[in-house]
Design a binder for these strands. Structure first.
Length: 270
DNA sequence: AGTGTGTCCTGTGTGC
DNA sequence: TGCACACAGGACACAC
């Protein structure tokens, strides 16, 4: 999409998780995508109009690419296992590369929005968002400050995007296991000892390793080229209920916190 | 203000 | 085979 222009936007329904913004297609058509970016779990396309398209995949969203030009025919073939009845937004790109970019999302938990590019940092999606975990804004001190005084369980606190951006259920479970911290422990008590320093390091480590492995393909995640991630083979606890801990051989437990599954080793995590 | 609960939606896997 | 049910990578609205 970078450098290409949006020739046409086809909306196949008036909303995703939320209503699409006013004049959605009109504000995108004829604009050039100057730069693609990411903040937390959001994708951002900076447009020549001075506005930016903000996209979130939710749980099941995906973009597929069909190359319509002759540049690299067949490289970006449409994923076979993608039911076209959930194709909700179609972007026809022209210019440096002609392609059809389709947003498909069975559960429709994803959403899109538009904001002025110079106001991105203060728009509702990013105003309160915490630092990028692999960026300069994240440090052991920053993590401590964000967790300080919180009575919520550390598991719930780490899923809160205001603490640190981009952590989801898998990597929170994995980071807590690596750091030897019980998911039930109050966030404030993690700051009190040296646990938060260890946690800081493990958050970064697990994210780096997962990115290196191409992400985690549970059922349907794939890269935009269609390739699968491999990090799921290296989960220590996530989706391993009743299996044995790799470290102490005791049984991995599943509990529910804030309506989400938490996997942990009650012996290794204190 | 911070925290816990329910909700949005479809597909898949499991047990009966 | 058919059916009911639980659960899924996330964020938000709401009640306290």
């Amino acid at each position: 999409m970078q450098g290409a222009s949006i020739a046409c936007v086809e909306l196949r329904r008036p909303d995703l998780r939320f209503p699409l913004p006013e004049n959605f297609a009109g504000r995108l058509e004829k604009q050039t995508v100057e730069r693609l970016d990411r903040r937390g779990k959001y994708l951002i396309a900076h447009l020549s109009s001075g506005e930016s398209l903000i996209m979130h995949l939710g749980m099941s969203g995906r973009f597929t690419i069909e190359e319509t030009g002759q540049l690299r025919p067949g490289v970006f073939a449409r994923a076979q296992d993608c039911n076209p009845k959930h194709d909700h937004v179609v972007f026809d790109m022209e210019g440096v590369r002609a392609a059809r970019i389709t947003y498909n999302d069975p559960r429709r938990f994803g959403f899109m929005d538009i904001a002025r590019s110079e106001e991105l940092e203060t728009c509702r999606h990013f105003k309160e968002m915490g630092p990028e975990p692999l960026g300069n804004g994240f440090s052991a001190a920053a993590l401590k400050a964000a967790l300080k005084g919180k009575s919520a369980p550390i598991k719930t606190a780490l899923l809160d995007q205001r603490v640190v951006a981009g952590l989801g259920n898998i990597y929170v479970c994995e980071a807590l296991y690596r750091a030897g911290i019980s998911p039930r422990r109050k966030a404030a008590s993690v700051v009190a000892g040296k646990r938060s320093d260890r946690l800081y390091g493990e958050i970064i480590a697990v994210l780096r390793e997962a990115i290196e492995a191409g992400g985690s393909s549970l059922r349907d995640f794939a890269s935009v080229e269609g390739g699968l991630g491999y990090f799921q083979h290296r989960f220590d606890v996530y989706d391993r209920e009743a299996e044995n801990c790799r470290r102490c051989d005791k049984v991995i437990m599943r509990i529910v916190q804030g309506g989400r599954s938490t996997f942990f080793c009650p012996s290794c995590q204190r």
